[in-house]
Amino acid sequence: MRQDKEYNVEGGLGLTVRRVIAYTVLILLTFLCLFWFYILFVNASRAHSDLARGFTLVPGSYLIKNWKAVMGGTQPIVKGMVNSFIVAACASVLSVYFSTMTAYAIHVYDFKAKKAIFTFILAVMMIPTQVTALGFIKLVQGIKLENSFIPLVIPAIAAPATFYYMKQYMESALPHAIVEAARIDGANEVRTFNTISMPMMKPAIAVQLIFTFVFNWNNYFTPALILHDDKKKTLPILIAQLRSADFLKFDMGQVYVTIAFSIFPVIVVYLCLSRFIVGGVALGSVKG
């Protein structure tokens, strides 16, 4: 502590001043991040007539009424949420399982094409999916899978970014000796992968499950090109429709509840898992 003071005298701003600046900026940014969601909550709980009159920071008492009105309304929001959940859950499970398998193939085995395949996957990691969207639509139309979840779920199996994360994690968490030991104990390769290696990858698997789930839950571009049937639409498509409908005709309280409906579940889940998620961001990307 004594040393701290000694250095502070020498140059730049004193430690106290720097602390004050740091906390001020941090609190401002915190405000900037949370403010919008607070207004969303407040507005979702107010009546349409009330909203038109102006803006307060105090929540109203219309939350339940607005909610019921949305449930009884024309927008299939609950159906959309179920659809989003099905797509996101299936895509994330497939993506993580098969990316781990692909990473395992590159990590554990030695074969001729290994280096070429690894380099190839890294090279295509940067290609945005939008670039191939045209061909993708044509393909989906060709095999008559429009309005189906299959073209949103199956392609998740080939996810270069998830693969890369898993590969990086394996380098530090899955020693070859473990695989050798399993072989000596008589386990076959598939069994070794499923019952020995997968459990050892748990932390990375959890992180990637969350990220791919959130990515698919929020994804708008591809589902909007594939799903045209109202019964099949996912949440982001319905939100975008809300925007394109004539805005002024809507009850604003209901509009806010609908938006809240798509945002708050993610916030609640995030707050429960935040430590884990924030740790996971750094874990993957710096190594990458």
Binding site: F98, S99, M101, T102, Y104, A105, I106, V108, Y109, D110, F111, A113, K114, I117, V124, I127, T129, V131, T132, A133, L134, G135, F136, K138, L139, P151, I154, P155, I157, A158, F163, R183, E189, F193
Partner: peptide, 27 residues
Amino acid sequence: YNKWGYIFLIPFVLVYLVFQMIPLITT
């Protein structure tokens, strides 16, 4: 053992070819 490297790569490669490579070429 090493032939399993190829076997484990099949799902990724197959899905990649069908859903990304073919669409890229068609595009």
